[in-house]
């Protein structure tokens, strides 16, 4: 049962990822990425990480990708054009991608103990997860949140710098 679901959604994830590369229209690529995100969420669920799965959907499929599609819609990005540069990237990109996949695959196959992580090993409840997160890892968690806050402030500062009188208009 778990195995069937795994193959279905792993297939969906792979198909979405390949489609993302093949599509020439940016909005189709963005939608393929959403398919990948949701399939990954199901794979997390199969591993018993229910909170991670739903966080993947809410944060990535729901929030991040909405911003992606927003940008595509607002900029009205057209179809991708084939130029000499893009052909060169294609020629270099495929061998490079194959090399990277080969390296990652060898590392994973060499690694010890990975094969024991199977499906169907019980569910990690949200309570257990939060206990680890807010007891053992409290300091890294807080530092990460401060880091994100700094990133947000930086983004706001950069956006305001662009046009001088934008601030006055926004304040009104």
């Amino acid at each position: 049962m778990h195995l069937i679901l795994f193959f279905i959604f792993a297939g969906c994830a792979l198909a979405g990822a390949v489609n993302l590369l093949l599509q020439s229209h940016p909005i189709n690529s963005a939608l393929s990425l959403i398919v990948v995100m949701i399939s990954l969420a199901v794979l997390y669920l199969l591993l018993g990480a229910e909170f991670l799965a739903i966080a993947q959907i809410i944060v990535y499929a729901g929030a991040v990708m909405v911003l992606f599609t927003f940008v595509v819609m607002l900029l009205n990005a057209g179809r991708e054009e084939r130029t000499r540069g893009s052909r060169a990237a294609l020629a270099l990109g495929f061998p490079a991608a194959v090399a990277i996949v080969a390296i990652i695959a060898t590392v994973i196959l060499r690694a010890q103990g990975l094969s024991t992580a199977g499906v169907q090993q019980g569910i990690t409840s949200t309570a257990e997860l939060s206990r680890v997160l807010f007891h053992g890892l409290l300091l890294p968690f807080e530092i990460t949140s401060v880091l994100i806050l700094i990133a947000i402030l930086g983004a706001v500062a950069l956006a305001r710098q662009g046009n001088g009188d934008g601030e006055r208009k926004a304040g009104k």
């Binding site: 959403i34 949701i38 739903i54 959907i57 809410i58 909405v66 599609t69 949200t126």
Partner: peptide, 25 residues
């Protein structure tokens, strides 16, 4: 009956934005 039912509802709501956004675009 799932443990994360409430989050699932929120997740589905967050995905449903696409219906409206894609329709308009």
């Amino acid at each position: 009956n799932v443990n994360i039912a409430l989050l699932i509802i929120l997740g589905v709501t967050s995905v449903s934005v696409y219906g409206v956004a894609l329709a308009g675009w």
